[in-house]
């Protein structure tokens, strides 16, 4: 057998490849060249299956996994620094990630809702006092979750959590339902 397209019988290697999973046709049944290729391809499939079987126990070492996660924890992407409070004496800012995380964790406490991304924007920047923030949160819902709860409960909970846990003032929260998860 050569690397060329054609076998000695005139047929191409490719033609055998394409039909290896189905029944051999009349020519292939009798042809020793096609037969040989067919046999080899089947053995290759067997080898591939065995290799996959052998690989199925291949996992990264625990210390490598730890290294990856530690790396992530010590190299956090913070997003923008968002001013949350201004006075002549000092301006206090929080990283967008910090505000997003508090919002996300609050949404997650409501059964049937999972937060995705949370974008923080500044609505007003008075010279004195709290800066007014707005949040845009993407959520996914379980099919039995009540979407009205976002307006009824979740919004207030988010505003309250950010005020209490961080000290920042959110005036608006808009939710976008991005997907419904069927478990």
């Amino acid at each position: 057998m050569t690397d060329d397209e054609s076998l000695e019988c005139g047929r191409t290697v490719e033609s055998v490849c394409e039909t290896v999973d189905s029944e051999p046709d009349a020519h292939q049944r009798d042809c020793p060249y096609c037969g040989e290729v067919r046999e080899r391809l089947k053995q290759l499939d067997r080898l591939a299956r065995e290799a996959k079987e052998a690989d199925s126990s291949l996992e990264i070492e625990p210390h490598v996994r730890r290294r990856i996660v530690d790396f992530a924890r010590s190299n956090l992407r913070r997003g923008a620094d968002i001013p949350v409070h201004r006075e002549p004496a000092a301006t206090v800012s929080f990283s967008e990630m910090l505000i997003a995380r508090t919002a996300r964790e609050t949404v997650d406490t409501f059964p049937g809702f999972t937060a995705r991304r949370c974008r923080v924007r500044t609505i007003a920047t008075p010279d004195h006092g709290h800066q007014i923030l707005g949040l845009s949160i993407g959520v996914v819902m379980a099919p039995d979750a009540v979407v009205e709860n976002l307006d009824r409960n979740v919004r207030d909970a988010v505003i309250d959590a950010v005020a209490r846990k961080l000290g920042a003032h959110v005036a608006e929260v808009d939710f976008t339902v991005e997907d419904v998860h069927y478990d």
Partner: peptide, 25 residues
């Protein structure tokens, strides 16, 4: 901010306007 102002004033330095950024908890 308050404590830093204290430290500056003790050294005879007038405090300006500080920028304090909280990145993480």
């Amino acid at each position: 901010a308050s404590r830093v102002n204290h430290t500056l004033i003790e050294r005879g330095i007038a405090p300006g306007s500080h920028q304090i950024i909280v990145r993480e908890t």
